[in-house]
Design a protein around this nucleic acid. Structure first.
Lengths: 219, 219, 219, 219
DNA sequence: AATGAATGAGGATTCATTCAT
DNA sequence: AATGAATGAATCCTCATTCAT
C-alpha cells in the first residue's frame, strides 16, 4: 500500500517510470499497490465510468494488458481499491482512539471525529472515491461495497454504544447515531473537495464535533 | 407538486398506443412529463449508467427514437429530471414552512426537517436519484447538478441564518449548518432505501431533529 | 431464406448494395435472411473463428452494429444459420423422397442419397459450414448443433428401418446405418470441396450408392 | 507407439517441479513429448480455440513461457501433435497388416479396418483431435493438416488398389474407396465419443466391416 | 532452460444518437 | 410526431508472443 497507515501521502509523490523500471525485481504485491494508487488517482479525477483501463495503465506507466495480469477486471480493481481504502481509514481511526485522550469524557468521541476528518482532508482522492464513485456502480455497490461502510460504521457504533452505556451521551439507536456521524463527516468533507467553502479544516472539524455533541440550540 | 404522485403510476395504466395517437393534440409538455416520470422509475431501478434510452422509451410506451423529439440527450433528460425533482422538493418544504408552526421558537426548523424527511420517505425513487445517481455523472454532476443542491441548501441556510440572528440557535457558519442538515436527512433517508433499518419513519425523523437541535450530550 | 428450397443458389448472385437500398421497405425477416446469406459466405470462406462480425457486416453491406439489431451475438447468428441450413437440407431430401421412384425396391434409398449429394454439390458453402465450422464451436457444438444433425440422421434412420422391415436391406442397427450414410455422403462431399478429386459428381454419387448398397466384395 | 499409452497419464503422477529440475539432463525430445501429451489432453478437453497456452503449460507442469522454448507457436504445437498422432495411427495399422491374417482373401482389409477402429476406441482424445479440432484451424487446416490425412488415406488406397488388382474387390476409384473407409471409421468413432450409442466396440467394428464389404443389400 | 511479467493487437458487444420514411 | 433501422465510436477483455532476468 502506497499510503503509510496514518498520514496519507499526496498523490503527487510517486516515482517516475524510469525509476520504477530500475527496480523491476519488486514484489508483485508492490506492483499491485502501484496500480491501485494509479487507479485511485484516475478514478478520483474522472469518476468510475469515465475512467478507462487504458488510462489507468497509462497512469501506472504500464501497458494496457498488464493491468489484467494483476486484476481480473475493472470492477475487481475498483472493489479492491475501496476495500483497502476503507481499511486504511478504519486503521487510522483506531490508532487515534488508541492514544488515550485526556480531559472530558467525550474526548474519545471528539478524537475519532477529528481523526476521520483529518484523514479525509489529507486525501481528497479518497473522498471522491468513497462519496462519489462508490455510488456509481449501481447494484454492484449495494452488494459488496456496503460491507465496507458497515465496517467503519460498526466501529463508530461501538464507540457510541459504549458512551451511551456510560451515560456520556443520551440514548439513541446507536447505529443511527453512527450513520449520522459518518454521513456528516463524509458529506462535509466531500463538499469541501468539490466546492471551496473557504473555511480552515480545523474550524470545520470543530464545527462538526460541536454540532454532534451540542446541537444547534444554545445550552 | 407536479409529480403525478409519490406512488408512481404503473406503466400499464396508460392508454394503449393506438388510443394515445387519437389524442395527439395533447400538450407536448404533458408528454415530456410522462417521459420524465418513466425515466425516474427506470433510473431509480437501475441507476443512471445501467439505464438505456430504449428502456426509458419502453417504460414510457414510446418508440425510443421519440425520446429525442422531447429531449436532446440522455444527459439532458437526466438533468431536467433532477431539476424538476429538486424544485418539487423545495416547493414541498416551502409549503411546510408557510404553515405557521405553533409552540417553541425552533418549531419552523423542526417543521422543515420533518417535511423534508417525509418527502423522501414518500418517494424512494427520488432518494435514489438524488443520492446515488446524481453522483454517477462525474464532472457533469459537479458542474450542473450542484446548482440544484445549492437552491435547496440556500433555503435551509436562510432559515438557519434567520434563527441565528434571532438568537434561537448558536452561531455557526450558516451554510455549513445548512449543508449538515441536508446531508444528515439525505444520507439517512438514502440508507433507509438501500438497507432496512427497521425503524418507523417518525422515530427516525424525531431522531434527526433531536440530534440537530440538542446534540448527543445530555442537557 | 435466400436459397430456394430445392436448388441452392450460388454465392455470387446477390444483388449489389445500391439495389438493396432502393427497396428499403423490405421486411425485417428478409433483411435477416440477407445477413444470414452474407454470413454463410464469409463463414464458408474463412471459417467460424476467423470470421469477424465486421466482415459479415461488410459482406451484407451493413454497418458493424446493425448486425446486432438482427442477431444477439455471433454465436446466435451461426446457430440460426446452421438451423436453417439443416432444415433446407431435410426439406430437399423429403421432396426427393416424395417423388415416387420407379423400379427396384431400393430406389427410394438411392434417390435419397443422390438428392443429398446433389444438394451438397450445389452448395459448397453449406458443406463447409456443416462439416468444418460446425465443429469449431467446441462444446457449444455438441449441445445445440447436434440436434440439427439428429434431425437429418433421424430421417435417414426411418428410411433404413422401413427398408429393413420390408426385407429390402439386411438388418443392422438402423441408427448406425443412418450415421454411416450421412458420414459417407458428408465427408466425400467435403473432400470434394477442399481438394479436387477430378471426378464428375454423378460418378461419385453412383459410387456412394453402390458402396452402400453392394459393398466392396463382388457379388 | 510413442504415445505414453492409450490411457493418458493423469497430470498428477508426474514428478513435482523440484524433482524434475534435478533431472535437467533429460532429453529435450522427452520434454517435447511431455508437452505434446499435455497439449493433447487439453485440446481434447476444450477444443483448439478454447485452449490457451497457459493451460497447456499448467497441464505440463511448466511455466507457460517455456512452451515457446520447445515450440514456435500454438499452431506449430498443434500441427506437430497432429503429425505425430497421425504417424502413430499409421504405424498401428501397418503393424496389424504385418501380422499375416489367415482365412479369406479379404482378411487383410478386415484386419486394417478393425485395427483402425480399435486404435480410435482406445484413444478418445485422438478422435477429438482428428475429427473435431483439426477442422478448427480453418485454412491452416486445409493446407498442412490435409497432408496428414493423405498419408493415412494413401495407405488404405494401396491396400484397396492391391485388392482390386487381385480381383478381391470390385473396381472403384481406389482413392474414393480409401476416403470412404477412413470417413466411415472416423465419423463413427467420433460419434461414439460425443454421444453414447450404447453399442459394444466389437459390434460396431463388425458392422463397419460388414457394411464396407457386403453393403446393405442382402446377398 | 526456465520463468512469468509485460505487451498490444484483435474482436465482440453496447448504446447514444441520427435520420429516412 | 412517431418510428425503429442504421450507425460507429467506445471500451472491456483475451491471449499469443516476447524478453529481461
Amino acid at each position: 500500500m502506497p499510503r503509510t497507515s496514518s498520514a496519507p501521502a499526496s498523490a503527487a509523490d510517486r516515482p517516475a517510470r524510469a525509476v520504477r523500471r530500475a527496480m523491476s525485481d519488486r514484489d508483485k504485491e508492490e506492483r499491485r499497490g502501484e496500480i491501485l494508487a494509479a487507479a485511485k488517482r484516475v478514478f478520483a479525477r474522472k469518476g468510475y465510468h469515465a475512467t478507462t483501463i487504458a488510462e489507468i495503465a497509462k497512469e501506472a506507466a504500464l501497458s494496457y494488458g498488464s493491468i489484467y495480469w494483476y486484476f481480473d477486471s475493472k470492477d475487481a480493481l475498483f472493489h479492491e481499491l475501496m476495500e483497502s481504502e476503507g481499511q486504511a481509514l478504519r486503521r487510522h481511526v483506531h490508532e487515534a482512539l488508541a492514544t488515550p485522550a485526556a480531559g472530558s469524557p467525550e474526548a474519545p468521541f471528539r478524537a475519532a471525529v477529528q481523526a476521520t476528518f483529518e484523514f479525509f482532508e489529507a486525501d481528497r482522492a479518497l473522498v471522491k472515491l468513497l462519496f462519489r464513485d462508490s455510488y456509481s456502480l449501481g447494484d454492484r455497490f449495494e452488494k459488496h461495497l456496503f460491507g465496507i461502510y458497515e465496517g467503519f460504521i460498526g466501529d463508530i457504533e461501538q464507540i457510541v454504544a459504549d458512551a451511551e452505556r456510560r451515560g456520556i451521551v443520551v440514548d439513541h439507536p446507536p447505529r443511527l447515531v453512527a450513520v449520522s456521524v459518518a454521513a456528516l463527516i463524509g458529506q462535509i468533507a466531500h463538499r469541501r473537495v468539490v466546492t471551496d467553502d473557504g473555511l480552515p479544516a480545523a474550524v470545520v472539524a470543530d464545527f462538526v464535533v460541536s454540532l454532534l455533541l451540542n446541537g444547534l440550540l444554545p445550552r
